[in-house]
Design a protein around this nucleic acid. Structure first.
Lengths: 249, 249
DNA sequence: TCTTGACCCTGACGCAACGTGAGGGTGTAG
DNA sequence: CTACACCCTCACGTTGCGTCAGGGTCAAGA
């Protein structure tokens, strides 16, 4: 009526070493030992292992799992809700990364020459539109912004492009200031407003993500650095400062 | 015209220690040193750091990054495509986890008593339907299965429930066999077909996810273990074996 | 000129969650 | 009696840094 390590390992799909480890850190110590010192797991041990693996799969650390399982008064719902948040943010992050990879792939495959005016070309293509729709397609803000954007004429677009260039040059001129200098923040805010229209009322998180992209994606950094070396990094810092400020309000 | 460690660290948003580390493992060694032995980073170093951080953000290991950056003949597109796949599977995994957390939260908040017939109740509620729609709502298989499911009468549902119970009992009776025993695999296949109808033609990945859920979620394990202790684990193994077999074909 | 205080350096240990031997005992089937 | 499949306990390796410890460097102010 007892299981050996190997049996338990095969049943649960973990390694023997893992069970040894769990024993060593006291998260799952078999209640019995054979005369020869062999670990003998009971059915109760198996159940506990199930719980351990469940929480491990959810991404909890072993230390946390130990307290969760040992302290019955522990608020599991609280822990699970907190963990859900964590998972959601991870998912968002991964979606951003996939977007970034797609963008880089597109630029690698589509040839490497990009004119200066095409700086924001990447934001315009179907890929980003698709991603934006996936993420915020269900919101009212998306619909409204979409309609606004569709009403733009070619002249309007050109105008917007010029505004972008102007703002970027403003920021380049302010690159000696602190990233949270009021003038810098104001320029970033103008950029945010502009992108809001094109990007369908993007939330702060996305705007911040775009700021990060500037630093990560050669398409942007190259162009930024033509304006002024190090500008991409500065812009990202400014975007972060701006987001923090807005969020803090 | 050089940057100190601190300056670079603040610019790029990493720690000084990180830069030391990158120097130590040879991924980013500043070209110059001051007479006192201080690291002096050039603008080219900053650019390289940008690349490093870009790939790091994408989840590449430092070892990989080193080869990517040092070997210009390295196929970045290949690497990026492979990495995209990895990210997608991670995203799927996280979505499954969120679903599992939601299910557990629901069961914790909705009271803990579940009748034996309600074993698959969890698969029936709006939450799972919502998730299924989010994930596969755009596929033709979803639509077809959905229509089929909507045409079922109450009697049909009862019938399906009974079939489920029967299959589970079959599997319980086969729990002494190997998880990849043909009889076991056949029973699992029948379960898959059954769930296909209720679950809108779920792909293998989801079916496998359900198998995992059996082991992780107390709602299922409790009921399984009433039929036979350890059955949940066995069922999961069988599901994995089945999925591997089908996938291998 | 001396002293702060903010920098810089190089080791070197610590962390999470195990993987991977090394070296040696146990148990059972042929 | 001998394989061979298990079991045990150390104990070091892995990844990407965090965190001291112990000790130089440099610019500014008293």
């Amino acid at each position: 009526m007892g299981y050996t390590v190997k049996m338990v390992a095969d049943l649960a799909g973990v390694s023997v070493r893992t069970l040894h480890h769990y024993d060593a850190i006291g998260i799952l110590s078999p209640q019995e030992r054979s005369p020869a010192g062999y670990r003998v797991y009971s059915h109760a041990d198996l159940e506990r292992l199930q719980q351990v693996l469940f929480f491990r799969e959810l991404g909890f650390g072993l230390r946390e799992i130990k307290t969760i399982l040992s302290d019955p008064s522990f608020d599991r719902r609280q822990a699970l809700r907190g963990h859900r948040e964590l998972l959601c943010s991870r998912r968002e992050r991964i979606e951003r990364l996939i977007g970034a990879v797609d963008g880089t792939l597109a630029s690698l495959e589509g040839g490497s020459e990009l004119s200066e005016e095409a700086m924001f070309e990447g934001f315009d293509n179907a890929e980003y539109e698709e991603e934006a729709r996936r993420k915020w397609g269900h919101t009212a803000a998306y619909k409204e912004s979409r309609e606004r954007a569709e009403a733009y004429s070619q002249d309007d677009w050109n105008d917007i492009m010029q505004q972008q260039q102007t703002i970027l040059r403003d920021i380049a001129g302010l690159a000696d200031r602190s990233p949270d200098d009021p003038d810098v923040l104001d320029a970033v805010r103008r950029m945010h407003n502009l992108i809001n229209d094109r990007f369908y009322a993007c939330p702060l998180a996305m705007f911040r993500g775009l700021g990060d992209l500037m630093v990560e994606d050669p398409r942007f950094t190259d162009t930024f650095d033509k304006l002024r070396p190090g500008l991409a990094l500065f812009y990202r810092q400014a975007v972060h400062a701006y987001c923090d400020q807005v969020q803090g309000q």
